[in-house]
Each structure stands twice: as structure tokens, then as C-alpha cells.
Simulated scan of single mutants.
Amino acid sequence: MATFDLELVSPERLLLSRPVEMAVIPAYEGEMGVLPGHAPMIVALRGGVIRVTEGGRETESLFIMGGFAEITPGRVTVLADEATPLASLSRTTAAQRVTEAEAALAAAANDAPEIRDRASDRLMAARAMQDAAQAA
């Protein structure tokens, strides 16, 4: 089966760099499946799970807090704000992040719209992390 190169980079390190058959990424517009030969684009990513398929089966699942993906016909590069293997997510940490994000959003109630939007994005990512941690 045809493959493309997938690279997943976080600020701390390179997490993944290998040929894969398919990747499903959490784009802001919704879940997006990427196959070899995909049309070139750059997409913003929300908090969610990246699922990697190799050999006809899902081989890897990683939670990202957001970021960007550059897609070309032969390569996908994901620049994640933060990335964690799904099996390593902690329910306690996720719940704490939701609490902190809710407090930050409440504190930003009278701030500029851009600040409120960033706080809202953080809350949505924290809730997605909590959902992923409970499902793992």
C-alpha cells in the first residue's frame, strides 16, 4: 500500500518520523483523514487525538493540545503545541487542566476578544484531553 512521510514535532522533541498509510488529525474544521497524494494545505489543529494507520491497522494514537499541520502529497508535518501518547494521559492531570482553563476563561471575561478566544481554545483542548484520558 502507498505511504507518505509523517512527522510529529512538539517543542520538546521529535515524536514520530516514519512512512505511514494514513493519519487522522484533529483539524479545527473537524477530523481530517490524510492519505498519500493529499492536496497541499496548511491547517490549524485543535486539541484532540492523532491516529496513525500502518499495515492496515491503527498503530499509534497521540493526544495534541493544538498546533498546525502542513500537508503535501508525500509528507505531513505536524507542529504540536504539546503531544502525549494516549496511553500516558492522566485523568487527574486532565481534570486539573479543565479546572485551570475554566478559571482562565472566567478571568478573561472582560478582556479583548482575542484573549477570550485563546482562553476558550485552551478550555476546549483541556476538555478534549479529559475525554481522551477517560476513553484510554
Rank of each mutant, 00 (worst) to 15 (best):
V78C: 05
T93Y: 04
A83C: 07
L86Q: 12
A95C: 02
A94Y: 04
S90P: 12
A95Y: 01
R91I: 14
T84D: 04
T92E: 15
T93W: 02
L86R: 11
Q96I: 02
V98G: 02
P85E: 15
A83Q: 06
E100R: 14
E100D: 12
T84G: 01
A80P: 01
L89A: 04
Q96D: 15
E82Y: 12
R75F: 03
T99I: 08
A80D: 04
E100H: 10
L86G: 08
E102M: 10
A80I: 05
R75M: 10
T72M: 07
A94Q: 08
T72I: 06
A83V: 14
V98L: 01
A101W: 03
A80W: 09
A83I: 11
T77Q: 12
R75N: 09
V98Q: 01
T92Q: 14
L89G: 07
P85S: 13
T77A: 11
A101M: 10
G74T: 14
T84S: 09
V76I: 11
A95V: 00
P85Y: 04
T77D: 06
E82A: 13
R91Y: 03
P73K: 01
L89D: 03
T72P: 04
R97S: 14
L79H: 04
A87D: 14
T93G: 13
P85W: 06
A80Q: 02
E100Q: 14
V78E: 01
L89N: 05
E102G: 13
A83P: 03
G74K: 12
A83W: 03
L79P: 05
A94F: 07
A101V: 10
T99P: 06
P85I: 07
E100Y: 04
T84I: 15
R97L: 09
V78I: 15
L86T: 07
R91F: 06
L89R: 09
A80S: 10
S88P: 00
L89C: 09
E102F: 12
P73I: 02
R97N: 15
L89P: 08
A101Y: 01
V76S: 05
A87T: 13
A80K: 04
V76N: 03
T77Y: 00
R97Q: 15
T72L: 10
T72K: 09
L89T: 12
P73V: 00
L89F: 12
V78L: 06
V78A: 01
A94I: 07
Q96W: 03
E82Q: 11
P73S: 00
P85F: 04
A101I: 10
R97I: 00
V98A: 04
E102V: 08
P73M: 01
E102W: 07
Q96P: 00
A83N: 06
V78H: 02
A94G: 07
L86M: 13
A83F: 01
